[in-house]
């Protein structure tokens, strides 16, 4: 029974980490589209390059944070959470 509980904990953490990493896909697509449009804008008005670069850096950093949240949660789920959950389980069954 204990093995089953440990397996569920570890499996749940692994599945959760995988699901959290889905968040890493979106920012890449979004940033790609944004930068493509910025290229178009600079093509039309080359004198705006400095402003567009500055705005793009701001936008990309903000967009990328979503993926970073997912990454941090995935890493914590793999490396930190199982130990905590197993400790809680062991304490609850008195081992």
């Amino acid at each position: 029974m204990l093995e089953l509980a440990l397996g569920i904990i570890l499996g749940g953490c692994a599945v959760g980490a995988g699901l959290a990493m889905i968040a890493g896909v979106g920012p890449g697509i979004g940033e790609g589209n944004a930068v493509a449009k910025a290229c178009e804008a600079i093509g039309r008005q080359p004198e705006c390059k400095g402003d567009v670069t500055s705005t793009m850096i701001t936008g990309c950093v903000i967009a990328e944070t979503t993926g970073l949240y997912g990454l941090v949660i995935a890493i914590l789920l793999i490396f930190v959470a199982p130990r905590q959950f197993v400790n809680i389980l062991m304490e609850s069954i008195g081992k």
């Binding site: 890449g28 600079i42 670069t53 850096i57 990309c60 970073l68």
Partner: peptide
């Protein structure tokens, strides 16, 4: 991120898209 944008803004739209996606994956 800054260097990637600097590079991507000097490319065509399609190239810029690919550059950004590749860079984002690598940085992640």
């Amino acid at each position: 991120v800054g260097l990637m944008i600097q590079k991507a803004l000097a490319q065509t739209e399609k190239q810029a898209k690919n550059t950004v996606r590749l860079s984002q994956g690598g940085r992640l």
